[in-house]
């Protein structure tokens, strides 16, 4: 009983520690960057100076303008133009949009599938568990980039195909993580207590197992989103992902690949920096989140 005052104190301590961790410069910078990136991607059509995929506006005469030069219609191409005369800045904003849509869509759907599979495996155990986990094991023994590459080789190009490939690549990671957490939680006594109350399996999974298994998943989803942005860009760069006619950061860089030897560095440099900054911001943010949600620190 007399541990109460001490416990309360640690509690307050953790809370203020959380505040301190949130106010670290890296967290703030990555958080702000992440916010800006999301805004830019969401409102790309409103923010972008030109629509780089409107063929009536794009003119080949503006091809390969250096950053800061004026285009034919008078707009300044702050980040230059590419070989076809598209404004790189506008293309980046549109590309970011595609990249984020692909990453977020695939992360959400894969997370959902993984949650379903992982919780089922953990709760029912036995054969269902070993069967599901065997599939997960086999899938995860192959690197994501390879599986995605093969799938796209089979499915062909397109945003929808990339999303499908990324879901197939990712669901198993979520499933394994959920199962690992849920199986630890499942053995805890509050689940036994709920079983004693004869609640339905669905209710036990939904109200008891799920809320306690979800925090590692939040961190994982963040880091996976960064990872899938990276994979999507890589695939598009290799020419099997988003087709070159669709704006995506990867296809923009791939587009600039042909010009690097001729000195038009900006076509690859700026989309790359955007890609790097986005992925890094998400990763740093995810790392912080991992520290904050670590059960060892919150107890």
């Amino acid at each position: 009983m007399q541990t109460i005052p001490i416990r309360m104190r640690t509690n307050r301590k953790t809370r203020s520690a959380m505040r301190e961790k949130f106010s670290q410069p890296s967290t703030v910078v990555s958080g702000v960057l992440l916010f800006l990136v999301t805004i830019c991607a969401t409102f790309a059509p409103l923010i972008a100076p030109t629509n780089p995929y409107d063929l009536s506006v794009v003119s080949i005469m503006d091809g390969r303008l250096a950053p800061g030069e004026k285009m034919f219609d008078g707009t300044v191409a702050w980040l230059g133009t590419d070989g076809a005369g598209r404004d790189v800045l506008s293309a980046i904003l549109f590309g970011l949009r595609t990249s984020l849509i692909v990453a977020v869509c695939s992360a959400v759907i894969a997370l959902f599938i993984g949650l379903l599979v992982g919780l089922t495996a953990a709760f029912f155990g036995g054969r269902i568990d070993s069967f599901l986990m065997r599939i997960v094991d086999i899938q995860l023994s192959f690197p994501a980039i390879l599986v995605a590459l093969v799938l796209l080789a089979l499915l062909g190009k397109g945003i929808d195909k990339v999303i499908i490939a990324l879901i197939i690549v990712q669901w198993a990671i979520y499933a394994r993580t959920v199962r690992a957490t849920a199986i630890v939680e499942r053995r805890k006594e509050y689940i036994e207590a709920a079983t004693c109350l004869r609640l339905s399996s669905f209710r036990i999974i939904w109200k008891h197992l799920l809320p306690n298994s979800i925090s590692p998943l939040i961190v994982l989803a963040t880091l996976q989103t960064a990872h899938s942005i990276s994979i999507e860009a890589t695939l598009s760069f290799l020419g099997v992902g988003v087709p070159i006619t669709e704006p995506s950061l990867g296809s923009l860089i791939s587009n600039g690949f042909d010009y690097i030897l001729s000195g038009a560095y900006w076509i690859t440099l700026f989309p790359g920096i955007m890609l790097f900054a986005t992925v890094a911001a998400i990763n740093i943010f995810g790392d912080r989140l991992r520290v904050l949600l670590n059960p060892r620190l919150s107890k």
Binding site: Y190, E192, A194, N212
Partner: peptide, 22 residues
């Protein structure tokens, strides 16, 4: 099930026997 509901259990570990999210 009806009979089993009349039987409840108190567990050993007070730290894991309560759902922390409720």
């Amino acid at each position: 099930l009806a009979v089993q509901r009349e039987l409840q259990m108190i567990f050993q570990d007070p730290f894991s026997s309560l759902n922390a999210k409720m």
